[in-house]
Design a protein around this nucleic acid. Structure first.
Ligand SMILES: [Mn+2]
Ligand SMILES: [Mn+2]
Ligand SMILES: [Mn+2]
Ligand SMILES: [Mn+2]
Lengths: 227, 227
DNA sequence: CAAATTTGTTCGTTAAGCCTAACATTTAAG
DNA sequence: CTTAAATGTTAGGCTTAACGAACAAATTTG
């Protein structure tokens, strides 16, 4: 059974696979049709049709109303797409001076049209980076994803001192806000407290030392590990 | 009358416009449906339909069986696409270490998906280059094409000393052959003779001094100016 | 547990871009 | 000038990815 190259898949199929894989990268619950539709900006019926087609190609397993799971072949394609996306983001920031809030949309399109050769050249030029500008791990050329660790800041215990490992790149405006606050991958901070009904998490950051209040969406977008 | 951004056109429409414009860049005769079909690798009926659609959008003028001419709006889009294509080729060679025979196909795809922002960043990083790796002029961001001069080597008078201004990038294999021969934009040479029925042009190149015999396809692909 | 709501699927339609086959026009030869 | 060849156009179909409407299943609520 030959594995077709990613370039033989439609852009839509590539986006589906990448999204299915990404959904389980930081949390274990498998993705649903309606969540996919919302993220991709299409109707659920479109996704339902698309998933059925992917199942026919042996890239996902899915029975009607059942869960959506990648096959080994589907996962290989998905990881290849994630690698493309994250290398592109890194290249745009490191070589072309983009800021981290500008790169996601550009990479979302380019990931489908750059050749394997171009990916290799960017990877070489960048010195085989292992994390993208948002802290997300870049899978290797061999297709082995590097498994990330971490929890959402909103779930980190008060009193702990942690380092930021990744910040979700989903919302450019939020990324610009984090830039203002001086929050980025590798920033260290101490979780001061969670105020549950206000949905506010307070953290203390050094250099300069300061306290920052973060709402639920912000503290969900930031992932941390103990240091 | 607003001019829509290039990104609002289909990839096919972008390719059509670029091809129509390019056809008259180095020779005056307007392009035909069958030549377009051959270059684009599609059937003439496909091109005929496509041209009709472009005419409906006000990007070309064309009556059935008539000639194909760009409108001002069509020309603006075409020049923007040529700029994209040539900046991409230059970027791939100068920044990512591609050789000049590898870049055309990659640029042919990427030109449709890179953003205006990315084009600007590449242009800045490259220092606003005016020629691509094949010697073709890169139109400015203002949309003003730089008018190239030159004649095909096959049409240059024997005895003249000339400089290569451009080499057609249509055939990668020929480009690799020219690399072996040491022929590139700005190479100076003296046209020794044309042997008409053999269809061979002999030229003398310096450093190291050597004579080179070029067949018709090669001497048609090379454009020169008097020095 | 039954009803209401949410979620997912199927089906018919549309728009692009491509194809082949048939036909029309223009150009080139005799 | 008339026919033959080359070139261009039109019409009808195919595929893909999208949509909405109608329907089915699963989940939540009362
Ligand atoms: Mn994408
Ligand atoms: Mn990212
Ligand atoms: Mn080119
Ligand atoms: Mn193209």
């Amino acid at each position: 059974m030959d594995v077709m190259p990613v370039s033989d898949l439609s852009h839509a199929a590539q986006n589906y696979l990448k999204l299915i894989w990404s959904a389980t990268e930081w949390s274990p619950a498998p993705i649903t049709v309606s969540v996919m539709a919302e993220r991709l900006g299409v109707r659920p019926s479109t996704v339902s049709d698309g998933i059925k087609k992917l199942a026919g190609q042996g890239l996902v397993t899915h029975a009607p109303y059942g869960s959506i799971e990648l096959t080994d072949a589907g996962r290989a394609h998905a990881v290849a797409m994630v690698r493309r996306h994250r290398l592109l983001e890194t290249f745009l920031v490191d070589v072309l001076g983009y800021s981290w809030d500008e790169v996601h949309d550009e990479a979302e399109v380019l990931e489908h049209t750059v050749s394997d050769t171009l990916i290799d050249r960017m990877d070489r030029k960048l010195g085989h980076p292992v994390r993208d500008p948002h802290g997300d791990p870049i899978p290797g050329a061999d297709g082995r994803p590097s498994m990330p660790k971490g929890t959402q800041l909103s779930a980190a215990a008060a009193g702990n001192t942690v380092a930021i490992t990744r910040i979700s790149d989903a919302d450019p405006q939020m990324l610009r806000y984090f830039t203002e606050l001086g929050l980025a991958p590798d920033t260290r901070l101490t979780v001061t407290e969670h105020r549950p009904y206000a949905d506010v998490t307070t953290v203390r950051v050094h250099e300069p030392e300061r306290d920052i209040d973060l709402g639920a969406s912000a503290s969900d977008a930031i992932w941390v590990v103990a240091v």
